[in-house]
Design a protein around this nucleic acid. Structure first.
Lengths: 186, 186
DNA sequence: GAAAAAATTTAACAAATGATAAAAAATGAA
DNA sequence: TTCATTTTTTATCATTTGTTAAATTTTTTC
């Protein structure tokens, strides 16, 4: 996926501002299995996914996947990006990935200098917020089986690309529970 | 709570920008029980809470409370604010409230005109996003009893100000389960 | 302050999900 | 392909949470 398409999908920027932003972006590739961002670390880059698939997870007693990112989506440590604090999430590449890299520091400067880029950053946060809020509500309204069906409907390709252990974790259940749910649906 | 304090707590604005924003804000009061925002309606205002307490809820078969707002916090229909689409949430006043009112339309114009206000809007969304993401992760990591203890620790005053049915709903459990949890903790 | 209404707790049983272990299936490496 | 490893499913039993109904407590209204 082309960088200008990705940027425009978040918020349509005037040509000049888009080029300014693009000038701060470089391309980089990593292999499946690579840990791109590490928990408890202030991360200094954000990434836009040109190609590939990643997951964000938190690791306490058990490992909980709470986000999947695919083509067009943005990878960042939210705490690092927003508060310049160590984040709670790690990012693992589930496939070989081609990424666009952008230094948080540069982005912060652009936010101060260019009203359009500031609004691009605002729209990005707002759209992520809506997605997160919808997931929270879904979690509160629906049982595991309904959430699984919802995921199948909204993101069927994830089931092809991600192993079920991660899907189960994302849905907030154990892998055993997910297997049971899948068996009941047959 | 003073309007300039509320605005500055989100993001410290230069004097001039803060005054511009304040010039678009009026004060208004409503009584406990008033429904401030209605689901499935494009809302044209956002509110900052000077005094009082509100809840956001979604109403399908059952009613689910997914947010409480108190002094200093911002009330809005996220979908209306972000996408100018009908929202899924209603807002009910749990106490008599004094509010600061701001027209979404005016705010949108200010976002285009003033880079500081655009960044204020960005910070607002980013901070809400972190809070929502933390709740989602808490929901995935912790059982009901742990989430209750966490709420007691982080927002003890809510338990004084909100009836337990709403708290239970916020925690994603039934009121009966919450009663059981509270009994076990004694 | 008494009666009515609303909120909270308790109890009993049902359903959903978790934990552990083992079996089966799928994937990857030699 | 074949063997080893990883992933997924199945089975059993334990725990958590839900459902319904009734009892109790608190709040509101007259």
């Amino acid at each position: 996926m082309d960088i200008s398409t990705i940027l425009d999908n978040i918020y349509k920027l005037p040509e000049q501002s888009r080029l300014t932003l693009q000038n701060n972006i470089t391309e980089i590739a990593f292999q499946k299995g690579h840990i791109l961002l590490k928990a408890n670390k202030v991360e200094s880059n954000i990434y836009l996914i040109k190609k590939g698939l990643v997951r964000a997870f938190v690791d306490r007693d058990n490992e909980v996947t709470f986000w999947f990112g695919k083509e067009g989506e943005t990878i960042l440590s939210m705490k690092s990006y927003v508060e310049e604090q160590p984040g709670y999430e790690s990012i693992e590449l589930l496939e070989d990935c081609e990424l666009y890299e952008l230094k948080t520091e540069n982005l912060r400067k652009l936010f101060e200098q260019d009203v359009h880029i500031a609004n691009w950053g605002r729209k990005f946060a707002e759209k992520e917020l809506i997605k997160t809020e919808e997931r929270l509500i879904s979690k509160q309204f629906k049982n595991a089986s309904e959430r699984y069906l919802e995921l199948m409907k909204d993101h069927p390709e994830l089931l092809q690309r991600v192993q079920l252990g991660h899907i189960a974790s994302y849905l907030g259940i154990t892998q055993v529970s997910l297997s049971r749910i899948r068996a009941e649906l047959k």
